[in-house]
Amino acid sequence: MKSTFRKYRHGFQRKKGRNNSGRITCRHKGGGHSRVYRKINFQKIKINIPGKIKTIEYDPNRTGKILGMIYKDGSKNYQLCPVGATIGSTLIASPYSSLIPGNSLPLKNIPLGTNVYNIEPEPGFGGKFARAGGTTALLMSKIDSWVTLRLPSNEVRLFSENCWATIGQVQKKEEAVRISRLKKAGRSRWLGRRPTVRGSAQNAVDHPHGGGEGRAPIGRSCPVTPWGKPALGQSTRPSKKYSDPFILRRRNSSYRL
């Protein structure tokens, strides 16, 4: 079983919070247990070629499980595993495939009220939305050549009817429940999480919140990052982004459908 998809596994060096020049841009990351990367090609969809599920595997780089697929033309690939998938069953990506979990179709051929995942932002771009374990999006309406989806973040967004999506919900790993209860500091280090020191406990030369005699307040109107930029609530999204016209309701809206 393990040798079947060995070509699609390779080692990789994690960034550990550093950019391409080696500078730390995200603190408190580093170390962690070594991992093997399972390559999943979201850009190329094998249309009208059925594939059989050979394995259902654990992926340490994702919050959901993955499928080892062997297609009718002899090629192999990894895919995201939907809830209810079983070894030996057949999946296919086709405009007229049946609505079973794991099959992929264009959004225009999917009926209203269907849960989907691995959604393309634009036709041919590959799946980008709703790929984490346990996530799914709801197909709400169709207007002209646009389809309205409610994403896992409760954001309501327009997609082209020619974008592809997969039926169902991503299967969540059982290990994710255990990881949420770490129980000891060593488990954080296994996950690549280094110790975090409060800014108010540091010296003034190291953090804007630091300094002072005893337990002093931060001395600012709002918390800031070590580089002086606003934190805790400040929006980091660009004021003008290409996807703004497609968003009907923001994810941070208090209104819920």
Rank of each mutant, 00 (worst) to 15 (best):
residue 64 G to F: 07
residue 70 I to C: 09
residue 65 K to M: 15
residue 58 Y to N: 05
residue 53 I to A: 04
residue 50 P to F: 02
residue 53 I to G: 02
residue 56 I to K: 06
residue 72 K to G: 08
residue 62 R to K: 15
residue 64 G to W: 08
residue 56 I to D: 00
residue 71 Y to E: 02
residue 69 M to A: 04
residue 52 K to T: 13
residue 48 N to W: 12
residue 72 K to D: 12
residue 47 I to D: 05
residue 65 K to H: 12
residue 46 K to R: 11
residue 65 K to A: 07
residue 52 K to G: 07
residue 47 I to T: 14
residue 61 N to V: 02
residue 56 I to S: 00
residue 67 L to A: 07
residue 63 T to E: 07
residue 69 M to W: 13
residue 66 I to R: 01
residue 71 Y to I: 03
residue 57 E to T: 13
residue 68 G to I: 03
residue 52 K to F: 03
residue 62 R to P: 08
residue 67 L to Y: 12
residue 69 M to V: 14
residue 54 K to P: 03
residue 75 S to C: 14
residue 52 K to W: 00
residue 72 K to S: 15
residue 73 D to G: 13
residue 69 M to F: 14
residue 71 Y to F: 15
residue 51 G to F: 03
residue 54 K to C: 08
residue 49 I to A: 00
residue 60 P to K: 10
residue 57 E to N: 07
residue 53 I to H: 06
residue 75 S to W: 14
residue 67 L to K: 04
residue 67 L to E: 09
residue 52 K to V: 09
residue 46 K to H: 09
residue 69 M to S: 04
residue 56 I to G: 01
residue 49 I to P: 09
residue 46 K to S: 12
residue 59 D to T: 08
residue 54 K to F: 14
residue 58 Y to S: 03
residue 46 K to T: 06
residue 65 K to Q: 12
residue 63 T to N: 03
residue 73 D to S: 13
residue 48 N to T: 07
residue 72 K to M: 13
residue 60 P to A: 11
residue 52 K to P: 03
residue 73 D to C: 10
residue 64 G to L: 04
residue 57 E to M: 07
residue 68 G to Q: 01
residue 74 G to A: 15
residue 71 Y to R: 04
residue 58 Y to V: 01
residue 46 K to D: 06
residue 47 I to E: 10
residue 67 L to W: 12
residue 66 I to Q: 00
residue 70 I to R: 08
residue 72 K to H: 11
residue 74 G to Q: 14
residue 54 K to E: 13
residue 64 G to T: 03
residue 59 D to V: 05
residue 53 I to T: 05
residue 48 N to V: 05
residue 50 P to E: 00
residue 56 I to N: 02
residue 50 P to K: 06
residue 51 G to K: 00
residue 47 I to F: 12
residue 61 N to P: 01
residue 57 E to Q: 09
residue 62 R to D: 14
residue 64 G to Y: 07
residue 70 I to L: 11
residue 73 D to I: 07
residue 72 K to F: 10
residue 75 S to I: 10
residue 47 I to L: 14
residue 60 P to M: 09
residue 70 I to E: 14
residue 74 G to V: 11
residue 65 K to I: 09
residue 61 N to H: 05
residue 48 N to R: 15
residue 70 I to N: 07
residue 49 I to N: 05
residue 60 P to Y: 07
residue 50 P to S: 02
residue 66 I to C: 01
residue 61 N to A: 10
residue 65 K to C: 07
residue 62 R to S: 15
residue 66 I to P: 00
residue 58 Y to E: 02
